[in-house]
């Protein structure tokens, strides 16, 4: 890669997803992140009850992300050829897990605001 700058990366991601979809996805990620921060600040504490559900969603998010990437790229687990491939696979899984956890926690918190029983 030559001159792999932030601007180049954005240009490449715009081309991968299409400019509209890419920025919608960035917007969605930003909104979900902001909503997550909002409920954390609003509730002034992490609800461990909700966090439990969020944690339980993580393996599903991880598996879904890996299968999605493999399906989109004609790939399978047998294609893992070296350490960097394991890192990429784990990276995709972690991204899926964290994304799922944040999404579930945020949705829970927005739909079922803090109750006295949560601590």
């Amino acid at each position: 890669m030559k001159d792999l700058t932030f601007g180049t990366l954005i240009a490449v991601f715009e081309e991968i997803f299409g400019r509209g979809l890419f920025w919608v996805m960035v917007g969605a990620a930003v909104i979900i992140t902001l909503a997550y921060l909002y409920v954390l600040i609003r509730d002034r504490s992490v609800s461990w009850h909700k966090f439990l559900w969020a944690q339980l969603s993580m393996p599903f998010g991880a598996i879904a992300a890996v299968l999605f990437v493999q399906a989109m790229t004609h790939s399978s687990f047998a294609d893992i050829g070296g350490p960097v491939d394991v890192i990429v696979l784990l990276g995709v899984a972690v991204a899926g897990a964290v994304g799922a956890a944040i999404l579930v926690y945020t949705v829970e918190s927005l739909l079922w605001p803090k109750k006295a029983t949560d601590a």
Partner: peptide, 14 residues
Amino acid sequence: LWISWLMKEVALKA
């Protein structure tokens, strides 16, 4: 490597 395939399949056209 799988990552090199991903580059060809996903990132190269972009």
